[in-house]
Design a protein around this nucleic acid. Sequence first.
DNA 1: ATGGCTTATTGTATAAGA
Length: 260
Amino acid sequence: MSRGTFKLATWNVNSLNVRLPHVLDWLASNQPDVLCLQETKQEDSKFPYAALKEAGYNAVHIGQKTYNGVAILSPHAIEHVQAGIPNYEDEQKRVITATIKEMRIVCAYIPNGQAVDSDKYQYKLSWLNALTDWLKAELQAHPNLALLGDYNIAPDDRDCHDPAAWVGQVLVSPAEREAFQKLVNLGLHDSFRLFEQPDKSFSWWDYRMMGFRRNLGLRIDHILVSDALKPKCKAAFIDKSPRKLERPSDHTPVILELIQ
DNA sequence: ATGGCTTATTGTATAAGA
């Protein structure tokens, strides 16, 4: 919200019930214009609308017990809200879309896929197909569009701490990377890579094996922006500080600053 | 070594995440 800058962010919180204090602290220190959350893991009746409102944030959410759940937070008006991918049957609450300040904001929790030989992997690929087909139309209607979320895809070897060990695994497999490329081919840009970045920049670290301390991570949370928004991008970065707190999410916020 | 943490659940072991 600082003058001249419009700040977008995405964060997989791995249970908003547990992480609400971290989210409120982060909102207060960072004052984003848009924060997309994934894995709220709660039904809408449990969503903390009041606490967020008190912090100055409007919110829209679709969620379910235990799994999934996505939300968009903003101090600005949140309009034309759409839940899910239109014309794609899916019981899992993974997408919410809204218009904020004449920008179409798509918040997505792309399926994990579990393992390349699993049904969940097939679901992931078909789900990505449906998302891509729909976004093609959505981009025509809304040239100013950003797709923020947990993609569960590390698009390039430099987005993986040990590419050799991960070859062919879920999150880095060729079919998943092709699906990511198809999103890019719609006229979207990986905003993080529009700028020079430190080597071994990641957005997720395994809770096990001291993954964070050893920086054994992946960059799987992304902010893709449309052609129309690309010239407005001013800075992009990952904020590792919430990952250092007590009881952190395994993901950490990814941020994009636009020139307003 | 397919483990290792963390979360949530008609829980006290299981499923899922990535």
